[in-house]
Write a protein that binds this DNA or RNA. Structure first.
Length: 741
DNA sequence: GATCAGGAGATTTTT
DNA sequence: TCTCCTGATC
């Protein structure tokens, strides 16, 4: 695992006694039995409470393995494990720390047979899910444009977050989209089932099902996990709540820690009710509120409080701190995204020179992963060390997915998606039609395509085999037989080689090395990724080959963050606001503080989502200990309108806490924008000046007709059909359109 | 029936 | 910028 930056108050590491805890923290630590809810505001010593609580439980004779600690991310789980060991000693390594999905995986591995599954299965991630949705739609003879497969995937995931089965979902489905989704969902589950595969939502759902339906399993887990601890409880979804409830049903020793102000995952099904209604769901629960912030300066905290106070709904609380006022928050106005990166780097240099701030204590945060690009390019060019958290999407690289598809097709011959992904890579003359007839044949025989091709190859090897009825053309049959031969070879290798070496063998045996060599754009990079994958798999070489393979595949599915190649202690950290939750840094740069980016444009028409953006801004601000900088660009290439305006969140911060580090001189071509510190709302036109059907002239595009238009917060946008240039979306302030009639 | 080329569309946040 | 999809070609 990559070395992560500090979590909450790593700085004051201490002995397991309750000395040095404030009264609220102590209350939380000393409460041992029964349900407990800890409202832990940002920087209030949450991690400290958790680790001390664990220490105290162990001091009271609870065995480490009787404690189950659940987090939301692998990052958080690793941090928590480390902190517990730091405090309690190695003996505490036995505490069961893991993500929801990791914990459920263990239960499935052990007890999946109780509900009719095998203990080896494939885990389908979001990309696989999408393919499975398309597969389901095609099974139903439904054109892919009937409904958006992405939307259906998300809808299915939301349903699973609520533990709704296809049947339950269908019962309450309303309207065309939901009713269509209902039938796809039904079929989708069959696709997964026959592939012996589960998606993320299934993992929770099946674990709950096991706990509910198997008395043996239920008794075993109740006996095993006597104390349950859930971190970031505000981000749990309904299914996860049921999971916790089932586990805690025997004894009620469940401690949840969270902060409704930091709830930022409702788009993933997080249900704020879980934390707000905890006292109803677990009667006799004690509630502790941590409101003293140890992390940030007064001015940073004031900004945070101001931003979060504009929420329409939240549990009342006010963070306070004893720390000094600190510096004002620095504002950086940039021309565009490249300039933004430059300017941020300028400030970083100044900080290093004037205040000896170490780069490892600096974080650059952004709303979307794509924003990291400008920073990366600059930093690479200048040799500035940085580390990217998450995001790299290593496991979404084509070559990585290809190799993994081979491994999964070997580990689980029934895994249809993996099989079909690798079936024609490299090209073997197996096209869509061949695969389709193979699937049909599979349905008739009850065998999976992966099993059938192996059988074909066996038949071919046995000269006196009885000629069975094979519904395939000669060419297709030959190609599939050859594929079966490769698969059988891989089967053998998988039983002999540790998984790290297996990857190398797979690449050679299958001819995938040629695919990599002949890659049109970046063969070296693709090779590097495959090598890196093999290196990651090497961790499992100590296991029996088959077992190591299976474990590696589970990890690959559940770990989204990759080890960065080298540990760079002197590197600037770059990460999204979402990924920053739970971390803290001496200096934080909140970049891209622009309307339509942060708050994100997709949140603009939904008040609930807008509130979530605000909480996300709050999370960003409260990551900073000593210094906070916020930057925005006046132009940003890419999508949407190129002209940008400062984020409303900037306007919410009292001006006495803000100071410009850098402002642009007003230049020709730059639309005027009032300084953020003095700004209320930007002036927006109230009605359209160009009507539909109006003829206009543009300096570059020539003459055209206005097709549609709308008034936005800051400007008027029109869509114009130009005679030469086609359809264009234009911002009226920028485009200098001339009305012609 | 497979492959190729070109175009279109889509890009939030993550286990 | 990149991936997916479609339609045309071999």
């Amino acid at each position: 695992m990559q070395r992560q930056p500090q979590t909450d108050e790593r700085s004051d590491r201490d002995d397991p006694s309750t000395d040095g805890l404030n009264p609220q923290q102590r209350t939380a630590v000393e409460h041992l039995v029964g349900p407990l809810l800890v409202f832990a505001g940002a920087g209030t010593g949450k991690t400290r409470v958790i680790t001390h609580r664990v220490a105290r439980l162990i001091a009271h004779g609870v065995a480490p393995w009787q404690i189950l600690a659940v987090t939301f991310t692998n990052k958080a789980a690793n941090e928590m494990r480390e902190r517990i060991i730091d405090l309690v000693g190695l003996a505490a390594g036995g505490v069961n720390v893991g993500t929801f999905h990791g914990q459920c995986l263990r239960i499935l591995r052990r007890d999946f047979h109780r509900i009719g599954w095998e203990s080896d299965f494939s885990i389908y991630d979001a990309t696989d899910q999408l393919r499975a949705v398309k597969q389901a739609m095609s099974d139903l003879d439904m054109p892919l444009n009937t409904v958006s497969p992405q939307a259906v995937r998300n809808e299915i995931s939301r349903a699973k977050d609520e533990l709704a089965t296809p049947h339950e979902y269908a019962e309450r489905a309303e309207g065309f989209f939901q009713e269509t989704t209902a039938s796809i969902y039904h079929r989708y589950q069959r696709v997964l089932r026959s592939a012996q595969a589960v998606d993320f939502g299934d993992m929770i759902a099946y674990a709950v099902q096991i706990l509910r339906e198997s008395p043996e399993a239920r008794t075993a887990y109740h006996g095993r996990f006597r104390f349950i601890l859930v971190d970031e409880y505000q981000d749990t979804n309904r299914a996860q709540y049921y999971f916790v409830r089932e586990l805690a049903a025997g004894h009620g020793n469940v401690c949840v820690v969270g902060d409704d102000d930091q709830s930022i995952y409702s788009w993933r099904g997080a249900d704020i009710r879980n934390i707000l209604e905890f006292e109803d769901q677990f009667p006799a629960a004690s509630v502790v509120r941590l409101e003293r912030n140890y992390r940030s300066t007064k001015r940073i905290l004031a900004a945070a409080n101001e931003v979060i106070s504009k929420l329409a709904t939240r549990a009342p609380k006010t963070l306070w701190t004893d720390r000094a006022d600190g510096d004002a928050l620095g504002l950086v106005e940039a021309f565009d995204e490249d300039d933004e990166a430059q300017q941020v780097l300028e400030v970083v240099r100044k900080l290093s020179a004037d205040h000896q701030v170490a780069r490892r204590d600096i974080a650059i945060m952004y709303r979307t992963n794509a924003q990291s690009r400008a920073f990366e390019e600059l930093f690479v060019r200048l040799g500035v060390p940085y580390q990217l958290v998450g995001a790299t999407e290593f496991y979404n690289r084509k070559e990585v997915r290809d190799v993994l598809a081979y491994l999964r097709a070997v580990a689980n011959p029934r895994d249809l998606l993996s099989f079909e992904r690798m079936a024609n890579v490299p090209r073997r003359g197996i096209g869509a039609t061949t695969l389709k007839s193979l699937r049909t044949w599979a349905e008739q025989t009850g065998l999976a395509p992966g099993e059938l091709v192996r059988w074909l190859s066996q038949q071919a090897d046995a000269p006196d085999a009885v000629e069975a009825d094979v519904p395939l053309g000669g060419r297709a049959r030959r190609a599939l037989t050859e594929l079966g031969r490769v698969m059988r070879k891989l089967d053998t290798l998988a039983s002999e080689l540790p998984v790290g070496s297996l990857i190398n063998a797979v690449v050679q045996e299958t001819g995938y090395d040629d695919v990599l060599d002949n890659d049109p754009d970046r063969p070296e990079e693709r090779w590097e990724n495959v090598v890196e994958l093999a290196a990651a798999a090497g961790k499992y070489d100590e296991f029996e080959p088959r077992e190591g393979l299976q474990r590696f595949l589970y990890e690959a599915a559940l770990v989204s963050e990759v080890d960065n190649l080298a540990e760079q202690s002197e590197a600037i950290t770059m990460l999204t606001y979402h990924a920053a939750k739970g971390l803290e840094f001496g200096v934080v740069f909140m970049t891209g503080m622009e309307e339509e980016l942060f708050p994100h444009i997709r949140s603009h028409d939904d008040p609930d989502q807008m509130e979530e953006e605000r909480r996300l801004a709050y999370v960003g601000i409260t990551r900073a200990r000593d210094r906070l900088f916020m930057s925005y660009a006046r132009f940003r290439s890419g999508w949407g309108t190129p002209v940008r305006f400062p984020s409303r969140f900037l306007g919410d911060i009292p001006r006495e806490h803000l100071v410009y580090e850098r402002r642009l001189d007003e230049q020709p071509g730059l639309p005027p924008v009032a300084p953020v510190t003095a700004q209320a709302e930007p002036q927006a036109p109230t009605e359209r000046t160009f009507r539909d059907g109006q003829k206009v002239r543009h300096r570059v595009f020539g003459e055209g007709l206005v097709v549609s238009g709308k008034v936005t917060r800051f400007d008027e946008e029109v869509t114009v059909m130009f005679e030469g240039a086609g359809l264009k979306h234009l911002a009226v302030n920028m485009a200098n359109l001339e009305a012609l009639n």
